[in-house]
Design a protein around this nucleic acid. Structure first.
Lengths: 121, 121
DNA sequence: TCTTGCTATGAAGTATACTTTATAGTTTAC
DNA sequence: GTAAACTATAAAGTATACTTCATAGCAAGA
């Protein structure tokens, strides 16, 4: 698969794909080079990129993702710890979201000019 | 309340407080200046900063927060639209979080070395 | 063939959200 | 009364995650 096709299917700019490769987020196992030096991506790149996109959307850093992805140098305990840490973070974020949503609903229900929630600040 | 106390109570660096003020996220209604030019924060700054912290933690940008906060120049309809938009965004974010959490739980439950999720990549 | 378009690279630029530095005035504790 | 601690400012620096630019090689259709 050529770069442009990956870009289209993963809905990512080509520049981002090359950036991910440069920083080692896309490892060489996903990329062969043709004789003309063009990249030839393995089909598995697509679900892989989905994992990355979802992880980023949810607040993981590229560093986090690389940690979770690279199997070298970390024990299963380490991996497990990273994952449970992230679940804890997500649960905190969920609580925050719920609280924010609640504030916003209250703000909608009362008059917007009242002295509460975002209305005041 | 002086800067250092606000910093302590809101658990934010002093530099961040001054930065927020500089970019207009903390408006002047929360800050008086003493004769020595020291800031004197209103007590309401604390819950206000909590709102900001939660919003940031949940993925809102400073720009977003400023939009929600500023009352000048926008009609109530505009404000209402912004708020309902934000609620929609929050609900999308909640779905994402739930999906991610689910993935992570699955990852924990199966063996980490299996050919799924982060285990493979 | 030749022009348009795709691919490549390295380096520089951008946006966001801060932090650090340099410098200087103010207050407090001993 | 003086040193340590706190406050202030402007400007520069940092980290993350990309994007854009300049340049150039390859490819495919008219």
């Amino acid at each position: 698969m050529k770069t442009s096709e990956v870009a289209k299917r993963a809905d990512l700019p080509i520049s981002t794909l090359r950036y991910y490769e440069k920083i080692g987020l896309i490892t060489e196992e996903y990329i062969l080079r043709e004789e003309n030096n063009y990249r030839n991506y393995a089909p598995e790149i697509i679900p892989y990129l989905e994992v990355i996109k979802n992880s980023l959307a949810v607040g993981f850093s590229i560093h986090d993702i690389k940690s979770m992805i690279s199997k070298q140098g970390i024990s299963k305990e380490e991996q497990k710890r990273i994952i449970t840490d992230k679940i804890t973070e997500i649960e905190a974020a969920q609580k925050n979201l719920e609280a924010s949503k609640q504030s916003l609903y209250e703000l909608l229900e009362m008059n917007i000019t009242c002295e509460n929630g975002y209305g005041k600040y």
